[in-house]
Design a protein around this nucleic acid. Structure first.
Lengths: 119, 119
DNA sequence: ACATTATTCAACCGTTCGGTTGACCATTGC
DNA sequence: GCAATGGTCAACCGAACGGTTGAATAATGT
């Protein structure tokens, strides 16, 4: 059967990116490689949950996980995003990377992504 | 309650893009504005299904729907993708838009996205 | 007025998703 | 060897998703 109904890589990537927790994880990994537990630390969900999220990101090719000793290192794989990025670029000639814009964006995500509480 | 758990715009955009049918719709709209029925035509799902997909895309700000007479026109809103595109660009300095690459990509998606059958 | 066309609404159904919990390997430290 | 640490696995749960069908709403054509 060649009609394997295998999900497109774009499916994997975009649905991986659709979750705010996973996006936050990626942002964290942008700053440095991390062990699974360290990734999980700032979240108030279970370790297992984060482990699953990381698996999703890995399946989408957005991160790579390398087991060394008893800790599993998670490393961003920016190239994994390339296909999706290219696809999106086709829908409008966006300015060639407004890095400042992104910086602010990231800041926001990192600061109050998950637990924003009412004052 | 200010802690409304309102989904982030990026959630909306990326999860809208996570579905191959919706991506194909966007590709179609890239070529021209279309009525809902015309969008639905090439797919072998129900009209209602496509109508829902279009609602999702509209909610994500990726298309705009304008009712004129009894037909609802669907029009791509490339600017809706901007935020997500900017976000992604932050994860790697991708080349400034390889349009040829994209063209081929699109071709592929349009041709055999949904119904690939075994020979 | 009546039938037709265009689209959405509402209820339902099976599947996937994100989360939890507790058991289960590994690897390290004593 | 034994206990602690790091991570995954498996089973489960409620919510969201993508699809279907049939009724409902609206504008158009005759």
């Amino acid at each position: 059967m060649t009609t394997a109904q295998m999900p497109d890589r774009l499916d994997l990537i975009f649905s991986a990116l659709a979750d705010p927790t996973r996006r936050r994880v990626l942002s964290m990994l942008l700053e440095d490689d991390m062990a699974v537990s360290d990734v999980a630390a700032p979240f108030d969900t279970s370790l297992a949950s984060i482990s699953k999220h990381l698996a999703v990101l890995a399946a989408a090719g957005l991160i790579r996980q390398e087991r060394r000793g008893r800790i599993t290192w998670c490393k961003l794989d920016p190239d994994g995003m390339r296909g999706a990025s290219v696809w999106m670029q086709g829908f409008g000639q966006f300015d060639p990377i407004d890095l400042d814009d992104f910086e602010r964006f990231l800041e926001t995500e990192l600061r109050d992504d998950d637990d924003r509480e009412a004052p």
